Simulated scan of single mutants.
Amino acid sequence: MSRISVRGFAVASATAVTTVGAVVGVASGDTLPSNDNFEATAADTTLLADIPAGQQAQVQTASLTQQADAQAYAADATAKKSAEESARLQAAKDAKAKKESAEEKVEAEAKAAKAAKAAKAAKEAKEREKEESQVASRSASRDASSFSPQGSYSVAEVQAMARQMVPGDQFQCFSNIVNHESTWNYKASNPSSGAYGLVQALPGTKMSSAGADWQTNPATQIKWGLNYMNERYDSPCGAWQFWQANNWY
């Protein structure tokens, strides 16, 4: 009868341990034993021919089962290692994405703050320019006292006086109001209300704060009307905007 080595089938518990150990060592990354060591181990194991014939099939089945278990263990170990590596890579990817997202948020906030600051600076510069323009135009306007009194004034003369007293960028608004209130008649009077003059001051005596000749001097009326519009509506154009909405100012 021929003798079959354990290289074909592992037998007994010693052989099973050797087989499982070899497989487990491979799964866990250990270095396989050298050929010489393996041969020595195989030489020390029981040969199949040494097992009684009635027990050989049982021993073979047990050995194959142990080999299958060892292979399953190795597969589980490999799968676990692969899962751990995938989890590590995903965690690194998530951390990188989170960092990039945070950096983008900081950058966006910085850009928004910079834009808001620039918009605020531009708005303030525009307001300063507007104020300076208004101050310059008003300071350059001719005062009512610089006009020599006359016995009477034509519409053209009154309008010419207004052009010299009212800032250029406000004249049209001032003119619109005067057109509606008195059609440039400095002696216009409203018997029912007591309003008087170019801008229909109510009552007309209010204009005495600009000069005692308020009834006969259109320059005095223009001076008072311009001051009234500036103080109450910030400008003639502000007064005209209110007039359009309410038909009075």
Results as ranks from 00 to 15, higher is better:
149 P>Q: 07
158 V>F: 05
141 S>M: 12
176 N>Y: 09
161 M>Y: 06
177 I>P: 00
168 G>S: 14
153 Y>E: 03
183 T>F: 07
181 E>M: 03
151 G>I: 09
170 Q>V: 05
180 H>E: 12
151 G>F: 10
178 V>I: 15
149 P>E: 14
171 F>M: 07
165 M>D: 04
180 H>F: 08
165 M>K: 01
181 E>S: 05
168 G>I: 08
183 T>Y: 05
171 F>A: 04
139 S>V: 12
155 V>A: 11
175 S>L: 00
167 P>R: 00
150 Q>E: 12
149 P>H: 12
175 S>I: 00
161 M>G: 00
173 C>S: 14
141 S>A: 15
174 F>H: 06
158 V>H: 04
170 Q>C: 04
144 A>W: 10
159 Q>T: 09
174 F>P: 09
139 S>R: 14
156 A>L: 11
142 R>N: 04
142 R>H: 02
151 G>Q: 13
145 S>I: 12
156 A>W: 06
167 P>C: 06
164 Q>K: 13
176 N>R: 10
149 P>L: 14
168 G>E: 12
178 V>E: 00
175 S>A: 14
170 Q>S: 07
151 G>L: 12
170 Q>H: 02
140 A>R: 13
147 F>H: 09
159 Q>L: 09
169 D>N: 13
148 S>V: 14
165 M>Y: 05
183 T>N: 14
163 R>T: 07
163 R>C: 02
176 N>C: 05
157 E>S: 05
143 D>L: 11
174 F>A: 09
161 M>D: 01
157 E>D: 05
158 V>A: 03
166 V>K: 07
182 S>E: 06
174 F>Y: 14
169 D>M: 05
183 T>A: 13
161 M>Q: 13
161 M>S: 00
162 A>Q: 12
167 P>N: 03
160 A>E: 13
154 S>T: 15
173 C>H: 13
151 G>M: 10
155 V>P: 01
163 R>K: 15
157 E>G: 05
148 S>P: 07
172 Q>E: 15
177 I>W: 03
172 Q>M: 09
176 N>K: 10
153 Y>L: 01
152 S>T: 14
151 G>K: 13
182 S>F: 07
158 V>Y: 00
164 Q>C: 00
155 V>F: 01
156 A>F: 06
166 V>P: 02
143 D>G: 11
143 D>K: 15
155 V>C: 05
150 Q>A: 10
176 N>T: 09
146 S>K: 06
180 H>M: 08
156 A>I: 07
